[in-house]
């Protein structure tokens, strides 16, 4: 059981590191939000499932799943609100230079 949880947590950390690299590296707001949503969806899922495996069955696992469902419902709302504010106030999306 410990080995399974270590595997899940390491996979989640991998996605989080990729997302942090993306946040530093990508060129504009819209593409950076993709990197943030990568962390939110898959990284958080894998890490919380790993911790739930470590906890075993019980009340704590149930509560961890509640936090996970909350993240899955709330994070798209926040990302959409931020991006819509950016779009309506006139930030131009970055385009690939056509040469």
């Amino acid at each position: 059981m410990d080995i399974l949880s270590i595997i899940f947590i390491v996979a989640g950390l991998f996605f989080m590191i990729v997302a942090a690299i993306g946040v530093v590296r990508l060129p504009d707001v819209f593409s950076r939000s993709h990197a943030v949503s990568l962390t939110d969806s898959l990284g958080a899922f894998l890490m919380l499932v790993g911790i739930a495996f470590h906890e075993g069955l019980g009340k704590n696992t149930l509560k961890i799943l509640v936090v996970l469902a909350l993240l899955y419902i709330l994070n798209p709302v926040i990302a959409h609100a931020t991006i819509r504010a950016a779009f309506r106030s006139g930030v131009k999306p970055w385009q690939k230079k056509s040469s």
Partner: peptide
């Protein structure tokens, strides 16, 4: 639909107007 599109990495919903959506894709 908008939540699913935003939750999938690489695509994000920018604007919703009754049932037209503007989607930013990578």
């Amino acid at each position: 639909l908008g939540n699913s599109i935003t939750l999938t990495p690489g695509t994000i919903t920018v604007e919703v107007d009754s049932n037209k959506l503007i989607v930013h894709a990578m």
